[in-house]
Design a protein around this nucleic acid. Structure first.
Length: 595
RNA sequence: GGGGGCGUAGUUAAGUUGGUUAUAACGCCGGCCUGUCACGCCGGAGACCGCGAGUUCGAGUCUCGUCGCUCCCGCCA
């Protein structure tokens, strides 16, 4: 990034930016424009730290050198916008500031112009002290002046530029898809936009450009990408905003491996360029089943090596009532071995119970493996043979804490999986500097929704089944695996995609399984189905969550820290006041009545 | 829809078992200071303790409600 302006376009305001000047520049006449970060008035000489996004330069007003400028400098306050003109000089001996990139020099001001005054800002721009997020969001334009958000925006730009350059070299075309599009009731809640010209009808903002990118494949643009806003009207989280940015890609004439290889290169490049991190390619691949078995979650954090252990076999014949009844109801029992955890207090173990309770587990059994035997409220219910088998299965050693959940499979897996993460953080088992990528593959096509009594698509209804599972589509749908793949970084899903169905017959079968009738499918996705009938090439794609990627890249606690103008948890904008009520006139135009 | 946390000068925080005039730091305003860079020194202003109700002789503190911010569960094909 250039830090010096030679262009005559900008020369009227500045010859250099505020981070540019070095000892080499001593003696030259320069012009700087920027914001007053700080001022130090010594009665005689006045120092100003002038800031722009490139850095800080100390400028000096000396009454003996330029009396008028010095007089004017008394008026300067925080965040005033000023232009100064003067000579670059070396700082006197002993006053070099090693903490500043420009610390060897200063600008001796001959002329100063106040370009604009500023109100006293509600928080200081240079202070690293935490400021309440509501204040930061209300004055986001000031928050954006501060270093963390400056860095985030700059890095974000670098990332999207790397992506565009990388994909351009790979023959991708960036093509825009509509923002005013059609509501698809499957999936997340849509943001709706009323159509004035079609009273009673609504556009939906896209949850993803899914259908349109598939149409682009039919159209013959065999490599498409887009860095695109997507919208979901669901509740927010630290890593979820109602509008977010996706790196969206689709390719024709490819298999899953082709896509995986291609985007691995892109992700590896990003982390190499911005973190100097050398990826070992290809990234590890973990099957969905292995992820659940070993980590309890479909987005495993493999930065640390603690696995869930299946104990169903150990306790197959148990007479311990709690375990017995779970097994009889087709539930499962799994355990975690927290190495060295025997030193945890009773109170700390109770806190762990609270963690698993969040995810529906009713209890958390535990055993402290002490030098002189096992200490536990439940061991007395076990047979000697069970104790031995358990010790072996868990590789128990003196000092360990064994933790167990027995429940329905989903609850056991998720609660222990989350407990594993909790322990990883709390016990310092996670190296926070580590970047552990993995692909999760072989997702099932369908899940069974017991409440609605129907199959639901785990990925989406256009995902293709594995070729070898095609014959199970009708007989054993829950055993069918999909050509789907997720990229997981440090336990966070950062991307996901699939090979799509390009065969109308298979698509019909999948819709049938999802209880989507032919006429319903036609009404919802007819335009895609029609298109698939006109020579759709085999195709597939992937989408990455840019915000989440940025959050991990910059180690921020929230997605809001990498978005210029984020929304609050209630999906409002504290800066603009959106959403707001509108005039009766506007509603009348749209044929909308308030409920 | 549900559970937890927070809300006190502009900002960040302290505020004891309910008890005189609600503290501090930074910032702000005024003054002094010619080498600072978290400049220093002297002085000053600044708070309807989120809002509303209740309990009490007395509420920043206790109770209820409400609003806002936040974390999580549900939700997010």
């Amino acid at each position: 990034m250039s830090t010096q302006f030679s262009s005559s376009l900008t020369a009227s305001f500045r010859s250099h930016v505020c981070g540019a000047l070095r000892a080499d520049n001593v003696g030259s006449q320069v012009k700087l424009s920027g914001w007053v970060q700080n001022w130090r008035d010594h009665g005689g000489v006045i120092f100003i730290d002038l800031r722009d996004r490139y850095g800080l330069t100390q400028v000096v007003f000396n009454p003996e050198n330029a009396a008028d400028a010095h007089e004017l400098a008394h008026m300067l306050r925080s965040e005033f916008v000023v232009q100064v003109e003067g000579e670059v000089v070396t700082r006197p001996d002993g006053t070099v500031n090693a903490n500043m990139a420009t610390g060897e020099i200063e600008v001796l001001v001959a002329q100063v112009k106040i370009l604009n005054k500023s109100e006293t800002p509600p928080f200081s721009i240079d202070d690293t002290r935490e400021v309440g997020e509501n204040v930061r969001l209300q004055y986001r334009y000031l928050d954006l002046r501060r270093q963390p958000l400056q860095e985030a925006m700059i890095v974000r730009h670098k990332v999207t530029k790397l992506i565009r350059d990388y994909l351009d070299k790979q023959n991708f075309l960036e093509i825009e898809t509509p923002v005013l599009t059609k509501s698809t009731p499957e999936g997340a809640r849509d943001y709706l936009v009323p159509s004035r010209t079609n009273p009673g009808s609504f556009f939906a903002l896209p949850q993803s450009p899914q259908l349109f990118k598939q149409l682009l494949m039919v159209a013959g643009f065999d490599r498409y990408f887009q860095i695109v806003k997507c919208f979901r009207d669901e509740d927010l989280r630290a890593d979820r905003q109602p509008e977010f940015t996706q790196i969206d890609m689709e390719l024709a004439f490819v298999e899953a491996d082709d896509i995986i290889n291609l985007v691995e290169g892109m992700i590896a490049l990003i982390f190499k360029e911005l973190k100097d991190f050398d990826s070992v390619l290809p990234y590890t691949r973990i099957t969905y089943q292995d992820a659940l078995d070993n980590y309890g979650l479909d987005a495993p954090d493999i930065r640390f090596d603690m696995h869930l252990v299946d104990l169903c076999r150990v306790f197959a014949e148990t007479s311990f009532k709690v375990f017995r009844s779970v097994l009889d109801k087709k539930g499962i029992i799994k355990g975690l071995n927290l190495k060295g955890g025997a030193s945890l207090s009773r109170r700390e173990i109770d806190d762990l119970l609270e963690v698993v309770k969040i995810y529906g587990a009713k209890g958390l059994a535990w055993i402290k493996v002490n030098e002189d035997g096992w200490q536990s409220p439940i061991v007395k219910f076990f047979e000697e043979s069970e104790v031995e088998a358990l010790g072996q299965a868990m590789a128990a050693e003196a000092g360990d804490l064994l933790l167990f959940v027995a429940d329905k499979a989903e609850i056991t897996n998720e609660s222990l999986g989350r407990l594993r993460l909790h322990l990883g953080t709390k016990m310092g088992l996670i190296d926070e500097d580590k970047l552990s990528f993995c692909w999760v593959v072989d997702f099932p096509m369908f899940a069974w929704d017991a409440q609605e009594k129907r199959h639901t698509a785990i990925h989406h209804p256009f995902t293709a089944p594995l070729d070898e599972d095609l014959d199970k589509l009708e007989t054993e749908p829950l055993a069918v695996k999909a050509k789907a793949y997720d990229l997981v970084l440090n336990g966070v899903e950062v991307g996901g995609g699939s090979i799509r169905i390009h065969d109308a017959e298979i698509q019909t079968k999948v819709f049938n399984l999802l209880n989507i009738e032919a006429d319903e499918a036609q009404e919802k996705f007819g335009f895609l189905l029609d298109a698939l009938g006109f020579g759709a090439p085999p195709h597939g794609g992937i989408a990455f969550g840019l915000d989440r990627l940025m959050m991990l890249l910059l180690k921020r606690q929230s997605i809001r820290e990498v978005i210029a103008f984020p929304k609050t948890q209630k999906a409002t904008c504290l800066l603009s006041g959106a959403p707001n009520t509108v005039s009766p006139r506007q509603l009348r135009d749209l044929s909308i009545k308030k409920a």
